[in-house]
Design a protein around this nucleic acid. Structure first.
Lengths: 213, 213
DNA sequence: GAGTTAGTGAACGGTATCGTTCACGAACAT
DNA sequence: ATGTTCGTGAACGATACCGTTCACTAACTC
């Protein structure tokens, strides 16, 4: 029991929160540059402008620091996400369009692409992080899209189909082969340029098949 | 100039090719277990049952060994792939169905999922390998599917559309959210169970919109 | 002021890795 | 038999990293 945390924490020099975030910033940028396994604690401390002792005071060890960095990035991404917000879907096509633009812009954004590049190789060895990632990412998107489609069915705008299947199809129409582009970091500018048209084409095709009346 | 390769290679003990493949086998299995950066040369040599000197005689350094392992795995995968083979497409639906089943079975197969898990994090730092991967993988699939659709257009089975766009849409219908499942290694059994139905649904939806007549 | 905690820079012991070298035996061609 | 190459096991020097300790200063509470 080295540090009796939360025990008689009365006086003493206050912990510098800015250093904690500097450490996470440094760690994340190094993860991007050279990968997780190839990034040493010493290098992180140096780039953060912090002594190694300070780093170890904030994060118990390599693994704890890694998890903290990944979780912070997840939260950032989650906070920046506006997809699936409860929207007025009087106009179903408009709602789908907005949803598609939101999710595809997000997937093609630098934070998302970077995040994926960092954690992709590591997730298989961190099942807890992998499931968190799945829930916050594709799982949530899928659920939100299902909910949207169900509301449209309830209001008689869509024919009766399995919403989960339909949601996969619609998302697939938007995504196409682009998941490979995101993973490899290629042709992303071109994707952005075509994004809105791509989403509109997907919505149009989807509604031509599933719209009622 | 340590080893004047291909110079007066007359006598001498023959190089043991089996050891070279044993090294690649060991390297790949270790890459899968612990990741590329966390796998040491010494460990690879030990698992391959080979001395470190022998390893260095076959592969100049870490990077060369890594590239050799990845390239061999690419070739294996390419050899096992039968997608896009010239097929009789009197029956367009049947041709699309066969194509879809082929490509989606492949993407969900263990070698493909494993390959992706190993190289995903590393490709961003190996642009040459990344472009090779893109060409052999999604690029080739896309091109083959485009060719198939163009033939269908020429024979009057499809309405006039941009084949590249249509190919993306069709592939997207097949894939849906499954790229995330593959990358995370989750729900792959369930995907296999539903694979044929999924492909058929995609083909049906696609043809309902684009089939002529 | 006293007491307590945060932070620094430097150094520690221990371990691991890289790529190489050495002496030696094994397998081939001539 | 001779020469040449392949392979082994062991050790090498160099470097890097981990997580900790030390002596010291800085910042805060009481």
């Amino acid at each position: 029991m080295k540090r009796p945390v939360n025990l008689k924490r009365a006086g003493g020099r206050p912990s510098d929160a800015a250093k904690a975030v500097a450490i996470l910033d440094a760690a994340w940028s190094l993860f991007l540059d050279r990968g997780i396994a190839a990034t040493s604690i010493e290098l992180i401390a140096r780039r953060a402008g912090v002594s190694k002792v300070t780093l170890y005071r904030h994060y118990a060890d390599r693994a704890a620091l890694f998890e903290a960095a990944v979780l912070r990035e997840m939260e950032r991404i989650e906070a920046a996400q506006v997809i699936g917000a409860p929207m007025q879907d009087a106009d179903l096509a408009g709602a789908l369009r907005a949803f598609g633009i939101g999710i595809m812009s997000f997937l093609a954004s630098k934070p998302a692409v970077d995040f994926y590049a960092v954690v992709a190789g590591e997730l298989r060895r961190h099942p807890d992080l992998a499931s968190s990632f799945y829930r916050l990412g594709p799982g949530r998107t899928h659920a939100n899209l299902i909910a949207l489609l169900e509301r449209a069915q309830d209001s008689g705008q869509l024919v009766a189909i399995d919403p989960a299947t339909a949601a996969e199809e619609l998302f697939g129409l938007w995504q196409g082969f682009s998941n490979f582009r995101f993973a490899l970091g290629v042709e992303i500018d071109a994707f952005h340029a075509d994004l809105v048209d791509r989403v509109d084409r997907g919505v149009a095709l989807f509604l031509r098949v599933y719209a009622k009346g």
